[in-house]
Simulated assay, not measured.
Amino acid sequence: MSLLTHYPPIDLRGAVVAVTGGARGIGRATAALFAARGAAVTIGDLDAVTVETTAKEIGSRGAVLDVTSRASIDDFLAAAGPVDILVNNAGIMPLGTFLDEPTNISAAQINVNFWGPIHGMQAALPGMIERGRGHIVNVASLAGKMPTPGGAVYCGTKHAVVGLSTSVRAEVAEHGVSVSTVMPSLVHTDLGSGASLPSALSLEPEDVARAIVDSVRHRRAEVVLPRWLGAAVDVTRVLPGAVVDTTLRVGGLRDRGLAANDSAERAEYRRRLAGQAQRS
Rank of each mutant, 00 (worst) to 15 (best):
Met1Glu: 11
Pro9Ser: 14
Ile10His: 02
Arg13Pro: 11
Gly14Lys: 10
Val16Asn: 01
Gly21Met: 04
Ala23Ser: 13
Ile26Pro: 06
Ala31Tyr: 06
Leu33Glu: 13
Phe34Ser: 06
Ala35Asn: 04
Ala36Ile: 00
Ile43Asn: 07
Ala48Asn: 12
Thr50Pro: 05
Val51Lys: 00
Val51Leu: 03
Thr54Asn: 08
Gly59Lys: 05
Gly62Gln: 06
Ala63Asp: 02
Asp66Lys: 01
Arg70Pro: 15
Ser72Met: 06
Phe76Leu: 03
Leu77Cys: 02
Ala79Lys: 14
Asp84Met: 08
Val87Gln: 11
Val87Trp: 03
Asn88Val: 04
Pro94Ala: 06
Thr97Asp: 14
Thr97Gln: 12
Phe98Cys: 00
Phe98Pro: 00
Leu99Tyr: 09
Ala107Lys: 09
Ala108Val: 12
Ile110Gln: 05
Ile110Arg: 00
Asn111Lys: 11
Asn113Phe: 01
Ile118Ser: 05
His119Phe: 05
His119Met: 10
Gly120Trp: 00
Ala123Trp: 05
Ile129Pro: 02
Ile129Cys: 06
Glu130Gln: 13
Glu130Cys: 05
Arg133Asn: 15
Val137His: 07
Asn138His: 03
Gly144Pro: 04
Pro147Ile: 13
Val153Arg: 01
Cys155Lys: 02
Lys158Ser: 05
Ala160Asn: 09
Ala160Arg: 06
Val168Pro: 11
Glu171Gln: 06
His175Glu: 09
Gly176Leu: 10
Ser178Tyr: 09
Val179Met: 02
Pro184Ser: 12
Pro184Val: 04
Leu186Met: 08
Val187Phe: 02
Asp190Val: 03
Leu191Ile: 11
Pro198Asn: 08
Leu203Trp: 01
Glu206Ser: 15
Asp207Ser: 05
Val208Arg: 01
Ala211His: 09
Arg217Trp: 02
Arg217Glu: 07
Arg220Thr: 14
Ala221Pro: 07
Arg227Ile: 11
Arg227Tyr: 13
Trp228Ser: 10
Trp228Pro: 10
Val233Arg: 03
Asp234Val: 10
Thr236Asn: 14
Arg237Leu: 04
Ala242Tyr: 13
Val243Met: 14
Thr246Lys: 10
Thr246Asp: 14
Val250Ser: 12
Gly257Lys: 03
Gly257Ile: 11
Leu258Arg: 08
Glu265Lys: 10
Arg266Tyr: 04
Ala267Ser: 15
Ala267Asn: 12
Glu268Gln: 13
Gly275Pro: 12
Gln276Thr: 14
Ala277Thr: 07
Gln278Ile: 08
Gln278Met: 14
Ser280Phe: 07
